[in-house]
Design a protein around this nucleic acid. Structure first.
Lengths: 347, 347
DNA sequence: TTGTAGGCGTTATCAT
DNA sequence: ATGATAACGCCTACAA
């Protein structure tokens, strides 16, 4: 084949779909003009824009995100790292993220760390290798290596679900310590004296709630290590019964429990019903997160309402603001929590 | 700049990360050899493989998925379309998908259709534009357009969560009609006569459960349209109380309810407790899905256990089999369901 | 505002 | 088994 040979090679590899070149040809412009018209119409004159739009529609053209990412070394992807997909807390947060993104150009690349810092590190490397537009990661307890990876990443990063004063970049969440403390103080004020803590999984956020619980009890000189009953097992409603049994075995005069989360609280309530323990008279129950079922349970269950959906939305807003070059009000956002006092803690 | 100019251009655009060319240079081979060694080591001699592996480790090389996708017109991505991220049913399924994929090369691109066929169609187009390695979609009720898109897609496709005899490609799930029928027959056999149906959201799967319920009651000559109480509102535990109230207002002698799902069943239970309606004596309750909380509730709640996690795993297995060219046992897999009879339906 | 030239990192094709 | 070359589809840099 000579160098002047202009004939088409017989074999092509293409996808068969129309490319930007096809659109350009049909519209009678250069490819780059089509590219610009699609990314920022204001860069192209109205006439050409119209012709290009027509051609796009006519051919059913859709840009190839891979080619785009390769050429611009920037993927229209936000990496999202959560410890669990089934935990409703994170499911709600992820829903907030999706909702706020709407049908914009940004895609989500989700990673499930399974509460493992090592897995988080692995996923982080994998995500970073795609040069994402932004990263949203759960928690503030990354490994040193992960933290360094994040610090050297040149994209907006939002840590979510917790409150802290030293984020890698931005942060939106609330204080689990304060949440645990507020719940416990409420139980103390309601007149309970032997207040237990029941917790499962005991991830960093649970640990902070426990610390808040302990702080409140210590201040009231009510703390006793025997009051704390935890397991590393993942939380489930059905874990409430055995954990309550353990707690009662250690502290016979237990009169209240602050549960790690609402699932356990619900399990404790059922076990109390089954064992004939009067709630809230003989036993107060307080949960955490305030799922929908808490206010309809019988008796209704006190819980700490957490802004998980809002955290998802807000994290995306912060990302979009940064990507658009808009000023950020504050890189650290505390969305707070709200104690919902109900029948289960009203002696 | 002359054509012979070999000097480096001042401005480079690269990502700064090592490329396959860097590895090739260090290993003293051609880039394509590195490419082959990485994708299928058996294509390269042991010696070169060793040298290449060394170079890869030394440079910390990781292939660029975008470049790979562009060159091969095939992304290492599985598109997953679900109607909801927070509905535990789909969350469990998605977890199964992630678990089965493990840390293999395939990524997941998740789409949330919000139970909207139009949104499903939009997402489908978007996904298809990335030339995914496979597609996993919920349900069998796609729009005609969506179905055509799927049929012309040249990748494995698995429809999940339902049973049907006419999948686009492959299918794994169970029959919601049969599930609803089995639950209702159980209530009939347990001696209940005024058996209501309570349902929220009423998506296609709920409709099929309702159809199964109706079929069972009609066979027993027990059907009465007044027994059916539904709403299009998304399901929540707190919807159980008002729906039960509606049902009782229409049918004063209602003695059992088959709920659309476990959330509603739980809400109904709480409402019965609150209203002093004895379960199961005056009112039987049966749910659907058999979430963990059902067997610990007081009284424990009868439900239909559904294999949602297993559906997720199996769908991925089918995809991987197909991608690897392994034979598929059957393109249609019925994973069944299992009625869990408990206190709430034992008069 | 529009266009030209070339590169982004990888793999398909064809040759050896 | 290995390599040279040319895509893949788009975008950045620079020029006009």
């Amino acid at each position: 084949m000579t160098s002047k040979d202009q004939s088409r090679k017989a074999s092509r590899r293409g996808s068969g779909r129309p490319t930007i070149a096809d659109v350009a040809k049909l519209a009678g412009v250069a490819a780059i003009t089509v590219s610009r018209a699609l990314r920022d119409p204001s860069l192209v004159s109205a006439e050409l824009r119209a012709e290009i739009d027509t051609a796009v529609v006519q051919l059913g053209y859709a840009p190839d995100p891979n080619a785009r990412a390769l050429a611009s070394s920037r993927a229209d992807v936000i990496g999202v790292l959560v410890p669990s997909l089934t935990n409703i807390v994170f499911a709600d947060t992820v829903r907030g993220i999706y909702d706020e993104l709407g049908d914009g150009p940004l895609q989500i690349q989700m990673g499930n760390t399974h509460y493992s810092p090592r897995e988080e590190e692995r996923l982080m490397r994998m995500f970073l290798s795609q040069r994402p537009s932004a990263l949203i990661v759960s928690g503030i307890d990354q490994t040193e290596t992960t933290r360094k990876l994040l610090e050297s990443a040149d994209c907006p990063i939002v840590q979510i679900m917790e409150y802290g004063d030293d984020p890698v970049d931005m942060l939106v969440g609330f204080s689990h310590f304060d949440g645990g403390k507020a719940a416990t103080n409420h139980l103390i004020e309601a007149g309970y004296r032997r207040i237990g803590f029941i917790g499962a999984r005991m991830d960093p956020r649970s640990q902070r709630r426990l610390a808040g619980y302990r702080s409140a009890l210590e201040t009231a000189q009510l703390f006793d290590p025997k009051l704390v009953t935890t397991t590393l097992t993942p939380s489930r409603v059905s874990l409430g019964a055995p954990l309550l049994a353990d707690a009662l075995a250690k502290v016979a005069d237990l009169d209240a429990v602050f549960c790690n989360n609402d699932d356990l609280a619900m399990g404790v309530l059922f076990e109390c019903q089954r064992a004939g323990i009067a709630v809230p008279h003989s036993m107060a129950i307080c949960g955490f997160n305030d799922l929908d079922m808490m206010h309809v349970a019988y008796p209704s269950l006190t819980s700490v309402r957490t802004p998980r959906y809002e955290i998802g939305r807000r994290s995306v807003q912060m990302v979009l603001d940064r990507l658009a070059g808009r000023p950020i009000e504050s890189p650290i956002v505390d969305l707070g929590f709200e104690l919902q006092v109900r029948e289960s803690t009203a002696r």
